[in-house]
Design a protein around this nucleic acid. Sequence first.
DNA 1: CGCTGTGATACTCGCCGGGTATCAGACGGT
DNA 2: ACCGTCTGATACCCGGCGAGTATCACAGCG
Lengths: 297, 297
Amino acid sequence: MDDLETRELRYFVAVAEELHFGRAAGRLGIAQPPLSRAIRRLEQRLGVRLLDRDRRTVALTDAGRVLLRESRAALDAVAAAARRTRRAGDAKRPLVLATKAGASHELLRRLLDGVAGDPGAAPVEVLLCEVGEQAGLLRGGHADVALMHRPFDDLAGFDTEVLDVEGQVAILPAQHPLAARGRLTMAEVQNVADLPIARWPRLDGSYPDGPGPEVRTQSQLAQLVALGRTLLVIPASSRAWQWPEHVAVPVVDAPQVTTVIAWPPSSRSPAVASLVRAAAGLRGTPPASTGDRTPSG
Amino acid sequence: MDDLETRELRYFVAVAEELHFGRAAGRLGIAQPPLSRAIRRLEQRLGVRLLDRDRRTVALTDAGRVLLRESRAALDAVAAAARRTRRAGDAKRPLVLATKAGASHELLRRLLDGVAGDPGAAPVEVLLCEVGEQAGLLRGGHADVALMHRPFDDLAGFDTEVLDVEGQVAILPAQHPLAARGRLTMAEVQNVADLPIARWPRLDGSYPDGPGPEVRTQSQLAQLVALGRTLLVIPASSRAWQWPEHVAVPVVDAPQVTTVIAWPPSSRSPAVASLVRAAAGLRGTPPASTGDRTPSG
DNA sequence: CGCTGTGATACTCGCCGGGTATCAGACGGT
DNA sequence: ACCGTCTGATACCCGGCGAGTATCACAGCG
């Protein structure tokens, strides 16, 4: 009976974000009256008031807030559909692998080497991300497959295959007293007065409170460590992005980190499947020279 | 630049499912020519061939298969958006709680009692499901919150709160020799020749191979046990739906089952939040009389 | 009490989605 | 081989709805 069209959802999202019909119309590239009508029609179609307009200001109702959130999700799904279909269409497209810059570097190198040696495999394009970007790229259809890390990344809704389990190390400024230690515990690392843990932005861009410096990228963080301003605890394999001024000390009781290869569920394209198989094949094969990962259970 | 409309996706899904333009058009309640045009336009908009039509038969291309899967997901998201918004709109709507019929019965009763005693809480409507239905209902916006069980249910993409951890029991026909035992192991229960494990349908409706009877509902299963045709291993709290002809024997090494309350992420409506809080408050409060659940670690 | 800025309304226009009629091939039966 | 049938594609027309322009109605503000 009723069918929300993506156009209507886009219109509503624009108004809900701008809280202003005129500006929203401008953003959408249409005039204001049709936009007003579209929203009104949407409201009566849903039988729900979405916006409180008191002749001068526009505010979202509870239902409006729900529709805003749901609309974004739905529009993302539609956009992802288009993207994935296009990508599936062009024949010799490269497979896009998203991975955190600097993490699991050895594993990635071996994976790429393995694929490069196999003439039958599709070419792989590597997309380097900051912190939690992989999940969004995978969900949005921008990437076909990703290397992710439990318990850091949100694996909800993906199929995964475990590639590696490893311990974590503390990355410290070389001149700091703790850097001389051969091993550390979480308790020792947690509250070092002169090396407060850095704060990452939340999804909305705001930062949690705390004494540590605010960071947005791994490079910033690396530099802050080199400057003796903070410390961090990361998986052993991420040592790859160490600076000369960094020292890595194993943290014996830190939670184990699991590296997984993840892909959208039921995206059993042959190319993805073969890449996953290749990755799984690397499991248990320790790297030739730098193979001092924490053994795991 | 390009925007798939839900109408186009619905059209494509219809054709992809019927693999026949005429029938698909009939199903959609339109004539065949506009449908052909719509699909053609969709193809050229995406720049991808979706269907191989060789003048006599229609077949999906690889890209078409991708779009079919993605379209269903996208259309579900849109439909869920509409449903959730409508539900958010009507003021004193009851909160819909989906739960497996017969499972966690005591917990549910206590939860409902608690909510009924609180005049401030929204009324709760219970929706009893078969096996894995909760996830779909929650995702589709038909339910606001659900009781689910790890590792059985698919919790991907939901926020959850653990309510209970318990052991499992084998449900056996009373007259079977094993029913006399005080405790059992998985090994003993796994391959009982005269009590083969029942087979549940897959998502596509087909059944896996095996010796056991095919079942679709819990009632069927319960009756089959009473008839001495099969056995099952279920969480201890599901003993609620035992028949007189059933005997429950603890399976000491069966995996622990976690009962969780789940809700769609960021669906922080006050009503849902208060129900979750009420449920979490029950945790650790053992039921008054029937409190012989397996303690857990 | 106008001026400004807001969203709503009235009206027109033109595109596009939909319908009907028809075509162009591909099979199948004889 | 040929015609009947069934398929999707094409040609053409129409009507509704989405979009634009002009204007209104009202709220703040000086």
